[in-house]
Simulated assay, not measured.
Amino acid sequence: MKRFKILSMIVALGLFFCACEDTNDNLVASRDVAVVPVLTGLTPESPIFTDFTVDDVSFTVSLEDGDAVDAAEIRVAYDGNEEFLQDIASFPSDITITAADILTALGLTSSEIELGSEIAVYVMTTSDGVTSRSQAAFNIDIPCEFDSSITTGSYGIVCDGWGVDSNVSITADEDDPYIVYIAGLAEADACTGNGNTMKVIIDPVSYQLTGDTERTIVADDCSGWAAAYSVYTNYSYTLKSGSFSTCDGSYEIVFELEYLYEGESDYSSWGDYTFTFTR
């Protein structure tokens, strides 16, 4: 983990410079071809439709100072079908689109939308006769029904950035099916755990994840793999963000990893890393 960081940084720098050289021609060729609108204020931040009679999503579309377009519109796409939704008359523009609007545009009923799929929403602009799909885009998830039986069990845990590929166990709260506890995070990182578990709260509407605001210390001493550097204690995980898939029971969680360096009282951080948990 920590011992691989310097090498990883060197490799990353090498890849960065290579990428700059390889893509320079493309960047030059694409200049001034299309205006790029800006999408902000996406509400909810992670759109999800569970009821096509009432659900909606809102956002603001604007242009950078000095930019102008001949026309702009919002389009939606689902399962290979792409359709016009509405024009954007001016910028900035505050927009709200409903699930019913999308169904009408796509010519579908709610029963024809497959659970576990997603609907793409994006802005198309026309400038100087060139029409292009912009980076102002997002996806709306269509989740499966919540099934508490697939929230727990034995899970594989993988984090390429932190070098973890192991197993943990997840158990449910006795009183609340939307609360689970992850055990084995320390052992998955080749440390000796102290028995503490990570509390994870599943939002019953968005299926986004939250946890305790304070860090969870999963190992009192992680000096085994860090011995070459010194002694690291109070190895901890803090849940920053995450999501739960109601279709396959998988979790994707961003943890901040922290520790106390020998003789210090203030925590130091190794940064944020994305971990995938698969049943």
Score class of each variant (00 low, 15 high):
residue 40 T to N: 12
residue 189 D to Y: 13
residue 165 D to E: 14
residue 34 A to W: 15
residue 5 K to R: 13
residue 58 S to W: 05
residue 202 I to K: 09
residue 233 T to F: 00
residue 180 V to E: 02
residue 105 A to D: 03
residue 75 R to A: 09
residue 116 G to Y: 09
residue 154 S to A: 15
residue 115 L to C: 09
residue 162 W to Q: 10
residue 170 I to Y: 04
residue 25 D to I: 10
residue 111 S to C: 01
residue 252 E to Y: 01
residue 9 M to F: 07
residue 225 W to L: 04
residue 194 N to G: 05
residue 150 I to Y: 04
residue 56 D to L: 08
residue 80 G to F: 03
residue 58 S to R: 05
residue 238 T to H: 04
residue 34 A to M: 15
residue 64 E to S: 10
residue 139 N to A: 07
residue 72 A to R: 06
residue 143 P to F: 03
residue 110 S to I: 02
residue 193 G to N: 06
residue 172 A to F: 15
residue 148 S to L: 13
residue 243 S to I: 00
residue 168 V to Y: 01
residue 84 F to H: 15
residue 113 I to C: 01
residue 109 T to L: 05
residue 162 W to L: 11
residue 35 V to S: 09
residue 263 G to S: 13
residue 255 F to C: 05
residue 218 V to N: 01
residue 40 T to R: 12
residue 49 F to M: 07
residue 39 L to G: 10
residue 232 Y to P: 02
residue 166 S to P: 08
residue 59 F to V: 11
residue 170 I to R: 01
residue 212 D to Y: 05
residue 258 E to D: 08
residue 159 C to R: 05
residue 180 V to K: 05
residue 157 I to W: 03
residue 275 F to Q: 04
residue 177 P to Q: 14
residue 195 G to W: 07
residue 233 T to Y: 01
residue 32 D to W: 07
residue 151 T to S: 07
residue 272 D to M: 03
residue 248 D to F: 02
residue 132 S to N: 13
residue 105 A to P: 03
residue 166 S to E: 13
residue 186 A to T: 02
residue 46 S to Q: 14
residue 160 D to V: 07
residue 219 A to H: 01
residue 166 S to N: 15
residue 196 N to L: 09
residue 72 A to I: 05
residue 220 D to V: 10
residue 133 R to T: 09
residue 59 F to Y: 13
residue 259 Y to W: 10
residue 5 K to F: 10
residue 122 Y to T: 08
residue 55 D to L: 13
residue 116 G to C: 09
residue 190 A to L: 15
residue 118 E to A: 12
residue 121 V to T: 09
residue 171 T to A: 12
residue 193 G to C: 10
residue 13 L to T: 14
residue 29 A to L: 15
